[in-house]
Design a protein around this nucleic acid. Structure first.
Length: 477
RNA sequence: GGCGCCGUACCCAAGUGGCCAAGGGGGAGGCCUGCAAAGCCUCUAUUCGUGGGUUCGAUUCCCACCGGCGCCUCCA
């Protein structure tokens, strides 16, 4: 049970993860088309991949994580026309915004690669597919012939016949099969275009991921990830063209990982439907820690209903963790020296947490373990307050370390209260305020002491009295 | 119509063929406190959509039904 198991969409089962190369993990996530601000649905993928990467690192793997920007396509062209700027400018603008959002959420950035910087690679790959007989040319367009790839449909679990029967797309008469998809699209007048053996044009939708992932990660790389809505047709088509390109001698990808959709008002959050919450907007209202906690409170494959109520709950839960950490630290600070951590106390929790993460990155369960640690920390703090004894200091430290490892290192949720430059000054000021108020309380001038507490509360500064003294903290957002 | 997923307490949400069905939020009571706050303790699913079946035993496996969702078209 000590090994990582990942749900593989291809086999529809959880499988023990075995890397292509010992000690190394190669992974690719389909990035977005930078043509509009990213929304919460995109953010879920970003956070999921961050967690996956972090966990692999904890397991001792060296991670090579690549993600693309599809910086040329129909939507970008349209957007450029709307905004009156070039397609490069559109892509640049929204890519930068995306990176900024990801960083703000504490995400470790993957290696980003752009489609427009790899046109030669793409053209070469399309040429090969034509050469091998998997693709055909019509009027400057190049199409992949799904019938030439017998395993077409293996990822999404459908057959060519089934799909043809239920096809809702209008049929392009030039295609041999309605499911055939474009590898290369001839440019229409006025569109950005690149020279190719078939005339000026640009890549079809799916080819960029094949080209880029194979270029940077090689064949049969470990993990290919994306939202569930990409399973068909995007990833299905990627498999077809990639394995055709590899002459069916080896698989394109070892493990397919897909996260569930974020929904809003009972409907999938999506740019096309106009039902979405931009990350930008959310970031103004909630700090990254709360957003991450919200997203991680549900297993990554489960659809997640977006709601401000859930966000508020995540905020309350985070505050519970932070309060425990703060109290524990305060107690430890009163000791003449830091005790030796009593690891045996924290070990079972670490084990359980590990097991949860190894179960297909089950962050919901992992979080439950973290909260059990919080409870034990609080219990020990209560005991210490009751008896005035600090016998448990070593245990407390071990638990605190474990909690920080779980929540901060692995889940990437910061437990530190924000570290603004003014914080130091505020610290010193509060130290004095608390001291003055303590004197009032000692003289039983409670009305004034209470008024100080109330006034500070209205400013968002909470005071908590305890036998060990008074703790203060800023009210969580 | 086809493929697939889900239905667990007031809300969110893990999970397992058989120990008390995690955890968070909320609520109730108690303890602590000058009062608060925080915290601790207890309680809040004899039960896991409904009806069958398999089994010594099912919430967990199978079937049917009801309800919700995703994909089949751009989509993270």
């Amino acid at each position: 049970m000590g090994e990582l198991r990942i749900y593989n969409t291809l086999t529809r089962r959880e499988e023990v993860f075995v890397p292509r190369e010992p000690g190394k993990v190669s992974m690719y996530a389909c990035g977005l088309t930078p043509q509009a601000p990213a929304h919460v649905g995109h953010m879920r993928g970003v956070i999921v991949m961050d967690i996956v990467q972090r966990w692999f690192e904890q397991l001792g793997y060296e991670v090579n994580f690549v993600q693309n920007f599809t910086d040329i396509d129909d939507k970008i062209i349209r957007r450029a026309q709307e905004e009156g700027i070039s397609t490069q400018e559109v892509a640049e603008k929204y890519s930068r915004m995306y990176i900024e959002d990801a960083q703000a959420l504490g995400v470790r950035l993957p290696r980003f690669v752009k489609v427009t910087e790899h046109m030669n690679d793409i053209i070469e790959m399309v040429q090969r597919l034509v050469e091998y007989g998997y693709a055909y040319v019509v009027d400057g367009d190049v199409y992949f012939s799904v019938e030439r790839f017998p395993e077409y449909g293996k990822l999404s679990g459908r057959s060519i016949d089934e799909m043809r029967a239920g096809a809702r797309v209008e049929v392009d008469e030039r295609k041999r099969n309605p499911l055939d998809f474009a590898l290369w699209k001839a440019a229409k007048p006025g569109e950005p275009a690149w020279d190719s053996p078939w005339g000026p044009g640009r890549p079809g939708w799916h080819i960029e991921c094949t080209t880029l992932s194979l270029k940077y990660l090689g064949a049969a790389f470990d993990i290919h990830a994306g939202g569930m809505d990409l399973i068909f047709p995007h990833h299905e088509n990627e498999i077809a063209q990639s394995e055709a390109y590899l002459r069916c001698e080896m698989p394109f990808v070892r493990y397919w990982l897909h996260w569930g959709p974020v929904r809003l008002k009972e409907q999938k959050m999506s740019k096309s439907t106009g039902v979405f919450v931009p990350i930008r907007e959310l970031r103004q209202q909630y700090e990254p820690a709360v957003i991450r906690l919200f997203l991680l409170s549900v297993a990554y494959r489960t659809p997640l209903e977006f709601s401000y109520e859930r966000l508020e709950e995540a905020g309350a839960a985070l505050e519970r963790m932070r309060t425990a950490v703060q109290r524990a630290r305060a107690l430890l600070r009163t000791l003449p020296q830091l005790p030796e951590p009593e690891e045996v106390v924290a070990q079972p929790y670490r084990e359980q947490f590990r097991e949860a993460m190894n179960s297909d990155f089950n962050t919901a369960q992992a979080l439950a373990i973290a909260f059990e640690v919080v409870r034990e920390i609080n219990q020990r703090l209560s005991d210490a307050e009751g008896t005035g004894g600090l016998q448990t200091a070593g245990a407390l430290l071990a638990l605190l370390n474990a909690l920080q490892w779980m929540v901060e290192t692995v889940l990437g949720v910061p437990l530190e209260i924000r570290a603004a430059p003014e914080m130091e000054l505020l610290n010193q000021l509060m130290e004095r305020v608390i001291d003055w108020r303590q004197q009032l309380r000692a003289r039983k001038i409670f009305d004034l002491a209470d008024r100080i507490r109330d006034d500070l509360k209205s400013l968002g500064i909470l005071l908590e009295d305890s036998p060990q003294g008074t703790l203060w903290r800023l009210k969580g957002d």
